[in-house]
Amino acid sequence: HMTFVALYDYVASGETDLSFKKGERLQIVNNTEGDWWLAHSLTTGRTGYIPSNYVAPSD
């Protein structure tokens, strides 16, 4: 899985979304859904959809 880092805080707007904090590391499970990607937080262990423009590839 690709690892990304959150650029901003995001508060989930629905049950399927994943809240995260700036700097949180996320594994992308599925990024074929356009602007919303299914991600797994390496910080909280939770999985949900995130806005793709809130994250950047982590080196």
Results as ranks from 00 to 15, higher is better:
1 H>R: 09
1 H>S: 13
1 H>D: 13
2 M>F: 10
2 M>E: 12
2 M>W: 08
2 M>I: 12
2 M>Q: 15
3 T>Q: 10
3 T>D: 10
3 T>W: 14
3 T>S: 08
4 F>V: 15
4 F>H: 07
5 V>I: 14
6 A>Q: 00
7 L>R: 03
7 L>D: 03
7 L>C: 08
7 L>K: 05
7 L>V: 07
8 Y>D: 07
8 Y>L: 09
8 Y>C: 12
9 D>V: 01
10 Y>S: 02
10 Y>Q: 01
11 V>D: 11
11 V>I: 13
11 V>K: 08
12 A>C: 05
12 A>Q: 05
12 A>D: 03
12 A>V: 04
12 A>I: 03
12 A>K: 05
12 A>H: 04
13 S>F: 10
14 G>S: 14
14 G>Q: 11
14 G>H: 13
14 G>D: 08
14 G>F: 10
15 E>L: 13
15 E>Q: 11
15 E>W: 08
15 E>V: 11
16 T>Y: 15
16 T>A: 12
16 T>S: 13
16 T>L: 15
17 D>C: 10
17 D>S: 07
17 D>M: 12
17 D>V: 06
18 L>T: 04
18 L>Y: 03
18 L>V: 06
19 S>A: 07
19 S>K: 03
19 S>P: 06
19 S>D: 07
20 F>S: 00
20 F>P: 00
20 F>N: 00
20 F>H: 01
21 K>A: 10
21 K>D: 06
21 K>S: 11
21 K>Q: 12
22 K>T: 07
22 K>P: 02
22 K>F: 04
23 G>W: 05
23 G>P: 00
23 G>L: 03
23 G>K: 02
24 E>W: 02
24 E>C: 03
24 E>V: 01
25 R>G: 04
25 R>F: 15
26 L>H: 00
26 L>M: 10
26 L>E: 00
27 Q>P: 00
27 Q>N: 09
27 Q>R: 15
28 I>S: 04
28 I>C: 07
28 I>P: 10
28 I>H: 01
28 I>D: 00
29 V>A: 07
29 V>T: 07
29 V>Y: 11
29 V>L: 15
30 N>H: 09
30 N>W: 08
31 N>K: 15
31 N>Y: 14
31 N>G: 14
32 T>G: 10
32 T>P: 09
33 E>Y: 12
33 E>M: 14
33 E>Q: 14
33 E>D: 14
33 E>P: 09
33 E>N: 15
34 G>P: 15
34 G>I: 11
34 G>T: 14
34 G>N: 12
34 G>S: 14
35 D>Y: 14
35 D>Q: 11
35 D>R: 07
36 W>C: 07
36 W>I: 07
36 W>S: 05
36 W>D: 03
36 W>M: 10
36 W>K: 08
37 W>R: 02
37 W>C: 04
37 W>M: 06
37 W>D: 01
37 W>A: 03
37 W>Y: 06
38 L>C: 09
38 L>M: 08
38 L>S: 02
38 L>G: 01
38 L>D: 01
38 L>N: 02
38 L>H: 04
38 L>P: 02
40 H>V: 15
40 H>L: 14
40 H>W: 08
40 H>M: 14
40 H>E: 10
41 S>I: 03
41 S>K: 02
42 L>G: 04
42 L>Q: 07
42 L>F: 08
42 L>N: 05
43 T>S: 12
43 T>M: 11
43 T>H: 11
43 T>G: 06
43 T>R: 10
43 T>K: 11
44 T>G: 04
44 T>P: 00
44 T>W: 01
44 T>S: 12
44 T>V: 02
44 T>L: 04
45 G>M: 06
45 G>E: 05
46 R>F: 08
46 R>K: 14
46 R>S: 07
46 R>Y: 08
47 T>Q: 09
47 T>D: 07
47 T>R: 08
47 T>I: 11
48 G>K: 01
48 G>Q: 01
48 G>T: 01
48 G>V: 02
48 G>E: 01
48 G>L: 02
49 Y>C: 10
50 I>P: 00
50 I>R: 00
50 I>H: 00
51 P>V: 01
51 P>M: 04
51 P>E: 01
51 P>T: 01
51 P>G: 01
51 P>Y: 04
51 P>C: 06
52 S>H: 08
52 S>D: 02
52 S>E: 04
52 S>L: 04
52 S>K: 14
52 S>M: 09
53 N>Q: 11
53 N>D: 11
53 N>T: 12
53 N>E: 10
53 N>C: 12
54 Y>C: 07
54 Y>F: 13
55 V>Y: 04
55 V>E: 01
55 V>N: 03
55 V>C: 05
55 V>A: 05
56 A>R: 10
56 A>E: 13
56 A>S: 10
56 A>W: 08
56 A>M: 12
56 A>F: 09
56 A>K: 11
57 P>N: 07
57 P>K: 09
58 S>T: 13
58 S>M: 15
58 S>C: 15
59 D>V: 12
59 D>H: 15
59 D>W: 14
59 D>Q: 11
59 D>M: 12
